[in-house]
Each structure stands twice: as structure tokens, then as C-alpha cells.
Measured scan of single mutants.
Amino acid sequence: NKASVVANQLIPINTALTLIMMKAEVVTPMGIPAEEIPKLVGMQVNRAVPLGTTLMPDKVKNYE
């Protein structure tokens, strides 16, 4: 099972992601793969992401 990116804290809307905000966890359904964490640093979320929520591609601005 592959790990996904999960919010390590509440991430407010329009916040630029940092390493400390994210952790890798095996979750269902799968979100953004954990190996993409370095790519996500500096990207902004387009909505608030509660603690423990899986980061889905549609929650990150300009994620492809």
C-alpha cells in the first residue's frame, strides 16, 4: 500500500505548504502520493484542510 499526503495540522485556505504541515500515511481513498511532498512545498491550498485530512489534487492550486 502506498502512502498519501495527510495534513499534520489545520492548513488555512491559501496557505503555502511546508514540510512540517504534511505527513505520509496509508489512507483510503488515496490522495496525492507521499513521494510528491517535496514538489508540494510552496504550493498553496485552495481551501482549508483540517488536521488528519488527506490532501487530494483538487485541494492544491496548480497541482498536476
Rank of each mutant, 00 (worst) to 15 (best):
V26N: 10
A16R: 14
M43C: 11
E36H: 12
T15R: 00
K2Q: 13
Q9S: 08
T18G: 04
Q9D: 05
A3D: 03
N62K: 07
Y63Q: 02
A24Q: 06
V27G: 01
P50N: 07
Y63K: 02
N62T: 04
A24P: 10
P12G: 05
K2W: 13
L10G: 07
L51P: 14
E35A: 12
G31H: 06
Q44H: 11
N14S: 06
P29Q: 06
A34C: 09
R47L: 10
V41Y: 01
P29S: 03
N14G: 10
S4C: 06
K2T: 11
V27F: 00
G31S: 01
V26W: 12
V6D: 02
V26D: 07
L19K: 08
L51W: 11
Q44I: 14
T28D: 14
D58I: 04
P33K: 06
T53Q: 14
I32L: 03
T54V: 10
E35I: 13
R47P: 08
T15Q: 07
K39I: 13
A16H: 13
I20H: 12
A16T: 13
K59P: 03
G52S: 04
P50L: 09
T15A: 10
N1L: 14
I11T: 00
Y63T: 03
L51E: 15
K61C: 11
E25W: 10
K39T: 11
V27C: 07
L19I: 10
L19H: 08
A7H: 03
V5Y: 06
E25I: 09
K39Q: 12
L40M: 02
L19G: 06
P38K: 09
V41G: 01
E25Q: 14
V60E: 04
E64T: 14
K39S: 12
N46V: 14
A24D: 05
K61W: 10
L19M: 11
Y63C: 06
T18Y: 02
Q44W: 09
P33Q: 06
G42C: 08
P38G: 09
L51S: 14
A3C: 12
P12R: 07
V41F: 00
I37D: 02
M56I: 05
G42V: 08
T15H: 05
E36I: 07
I20N: 12
V49W: 07
M30E: 12
V41Q: 05
E36W: 10
N8G: 10
K61H: 11
P12Q: 08
N62W: 09
L55W: 02
L17K: 00
K2R: 14
I37K: 00
V60W: 00
E36N: 10
D58Y: 13
N8Y: 07
P12I: 06
P33V: 05
A3L: 09
V45Y: 00
Q9E: 09
L51D: 10
I11K: 01
V6H: 01
I32F: 04
M22S: 01
K39D: 11
T18S: 10
M21Y: 05
T54Y: 03
V45K: 00
S4M: 02
I13G: 06
K61L: 11
I20K: 13
T18K: 10
K61D: 08
L17W: 00
V49N: 05
M22A: 01
M21A: 04
I37Y: 00
I37G: 00
I13Q: 11
S4T: 03
P38I: 09
N62E: 09
M22T: 03
N14P: 00
I11Q: 01
T15S: 09
M30V: 12
Q44L: 11
A48S: 11
V26H: 12
P38C: 13
Q9F: 08
G42D: 04
N14Y: 11
L19D: 06
E25V: 13
M30I: 11
A7K: 06
V45D: 05
M43V: 04
K23R: 15
A34H: 04
K23L: 07
G52I: 05
V5A: 08
N1R: 13
E35D: 14
G31I: 02
V27E: 02
I13L: 09
P57F: 04
I37L: 08
I20T: 12
E25H: 09
M30D: 07
M21K: 01
M30Y: 12
N46C: 13
M22H: 00
P29W: 07
P33C: 11
L17Q: 00
K39V: 11
V5I: 14
A3M: 11
M56Y: 09
L55S: 00
M21F: 05
L51Y: 14
A34L: 04
V5M: 03
K39A: 11
N46E: 07
G52D: 04
P50D: 09
V27A: 05
V49T: 07
K39N: 13
M30R: 13
I13Y: 08
P12S: 06
T53G: 12
K23N: 07
K2D: 08
N46Q: 07
V6C: 07
V27D: 01
L19P: 08
T18A: 08
S4W: 03
E64W: 13
T18D: 05
L10Q: 10
V5H: 05
L55I: 13
N1H: 14
P33S: 10
M30S: 12
V49S: 03
E64Q: 15
A3P: 12
E36R: 09
V6E: 00
E35T: 13
K2I: 13
I32C: 04
E36L: 11
I37W: 05
V27S: 01
G42Q: 04
K61G: 05
N1I: 14
A3E: 10
K61T: 11
A24N: 05
G31E: 02
V5P: 02
G31K: 00
K61V: 14
M56D: 07
N62F: 11
I37N: 04
I20E: 14
I20P: 14
Y63R: 00
T18L: 08
K23T: 09
L51N: 12
A3H: 10
A7I: 05
N8C: 12
T53V: 11
G52N: 09
V5C: 07
T15V: 10
G31A: 02
T28H: 14
Q9M: 13
N46K: 11
P50I: 08
I37F: 01
L40Q: 02
N1S: 13
N62Q: 09
E64P: 13
E64L: 15
P12N: 08
T54R: 00
Q9K: 10
K61I: 15
T28L: 12
K59D: 15
V27Y: 02
G31W: 04
I20A: 14
P33E: 05
G42W: 05
A48C: 13
T28G: 03
N1V: 14
T53P: 02
L55Q: 04
L55F: 07
V26R: 10
T18R: 09
E64M: 14
V49I: 15
G42R: 00
I11W: 03
Q9G: 03
P50C: 09
V60R: 01
S4E: 01
A16N: 11
V26M: 11
R47K: 14
M30T: 11
V49R: 00
T53K: 08
P33M: 06
I37S: 01
P29K: 03
Y63W: 13
E64K: 12
T28K: 11
A3N: 06
T15I: 09
K39R: 14
A7W: 03
P12Y: 08
P12W: 07
N62I: 03
R47D: 15
R47E: 15
A7M: 05
L55Y: 00
L17P: 01
T15L: 05
K23W: 07
Y63V: 06
G52W: 05
P12F: 08
E36F: 12
A24K: 06
V41C: 08
Y63S: 02
V45Q: 00
L40F: 02
V27P: 01
P29I: 09
V60C: 06
A7V: 06
P29C: 09
I13T: 11
T54D: 05
A7T: 07
M22I: 07
K39F: 13
I32E: 00
V27N: 00
D58L: 02
L17I: 12
T18E: 10
P29D: 06
L17H: 02
P38T: 10
V6M: 04
M43A: 05
G52Q: 00
I11E: 01
V45T: 09
K59S: 15
N46I: 14
T28C: 15
S4F: 03
P29M: 06
M56F: 12
G42I: 07
P57I: 01
I13E: 14
N8M: 09
A16W: 12
G42H: 03
N8A: 15
A16F: 15
I20S: 13
P50E: 10
T28A: 12
T28R: 11
Y63G: 01
E35W: 14
I20G: 12
T15M: 08
L10N: 15
E35M: 11
I11F: 03
L40W: 02
P33W: 08
K61E: 09
G42E: 03
A3F: 10
I20L: 12
V41H: 02
A48F: 09
K2H: 13
P50A: 11
N62R: 08
A3W: 09
E35G: 11
K39L: 13
V6S: 02
T28S: 14
D58F: 10
N8S: 14
M21R: 00
A34M: 06
L40C: 06
